[in-house]
Amino acid sequence: MVKEIDAKIIEIDNEIEKIKAAEVLDEAQLYVLKRQRHDLIKMCKDLGPHDKVYLARHKKRPKITDYIENIFEDFFEQQGDDLGKEDGSIYGGIATFNGVPVTVIGHRKGNDLTENLKCNFGMPGPEGYRKALRLMKQAEKFGRPIITFIDTPGAYPGLEAETNGQGTAIATNLAKMSALKVPVIAIVTGEGSSGGALAIGVANSVLMMENAVYSILSPEGYATILWKDSTRSDEACDMMKLTAQDLKGFKVIDDIIPEPIGGAHINPKVVYKTVSKYIAKELSKYSKMNEDDVSKHRYKKFRNIDADYLKLL
C-alpha cells in the first residue's frame, strides 16, 4: 500500500520540480499538487508489516550520517579495525551530545551507488564488527556513553567475510558489549536483520523507530527458508513479527520513537529532534548508576529478555 502511495508522491514531487523550474510559476497548479501530496501522506496510516519494511528501507530515510550531523556536535570520525582493514559499512567516531562526549557507531549504507558500493550496502564483514568493538572499548576506557544506530540487511555472506571469521567477530561483540562499563543506547533506525544487527545492539536501552523493523533474518531470507521463494516476502513479514510494535510486545525493545505520518523521510527535521529527546531521556537513566551497575543492568536485561516466554518445568 505505502509503496503505491510513495510512487504517486514521487510523481507529484517531479511535477512540482518542473513547475518550480519553469520560467513562469504556475502557482495555482503548485497548490493543487501540494494539497494532493499532503492527502497522499495522510493515507499512510494503519501500516502493515510489509509497509513498514518498505519504509524502513526507503532511500530517503535518514541515515547514520544524517543523525550524526543533526543530533551530535563536533564529530570526529574513526576508521579501521587496527588489524588490517577499514570496513565502510560501519561508521563511527567521537562526538558530543548536549555537550557530553559520546561514541557513536552505526551501519552505513550510503546515499548513492558509489557510496553504496563503498559501504557494501550496509553489510559489514568481520572487520566492521571489530572496528565497532575497538570504538566501544575506547569509549569504555574514556568513560563515554555509546550510542549505536542499527540499519543493516545483515552481516555480509561473502567468501572473505567467512574466511576472516564473521561468526567469531559477531560473537566477540555480543560477549564484550554485554560487559561494557559505560551506558549503551541502541536505536534501530531502519532494518535490523540478523546477528549483523545484534552485533552492535547489546545495549542498556534498545529503541526502535516507529517504522523500523528488527528480525532474525530478512523477510526475503525467511521466505526462502520457508517456501523456497523469496518473492513471498510480504507473507513472511506478516508471520515474522518484526515491527517495533511487535518487539515492544515481546519486551525485546524498550521504547518506540514516533515518526511523522508517512515515515521519517517525510519530515527528517522533526525526527532528529525526537530522536535527540529520546537519547537524552535514556542517557539520564544511567547517569546516576556506577559502572558496575550499568554493566549488570545490561547483563540482566539480556539474561531475562525471554522471561515472558521462558517457563521452567
Binding site: 559477531i170 555480543l174 545484534l198 528488527y214 525485546v252 539480556f302 516466554y309
Partner: peptide, 8 residues
C-alpha cells in the same frame, strides 16, 4: 526474534 536474542 526470540531466537536472535539467545545469541546475546
Amino acid at each position: 526474534i526470540m531466537s536472535l536474542m539467545q545469541m546475546a
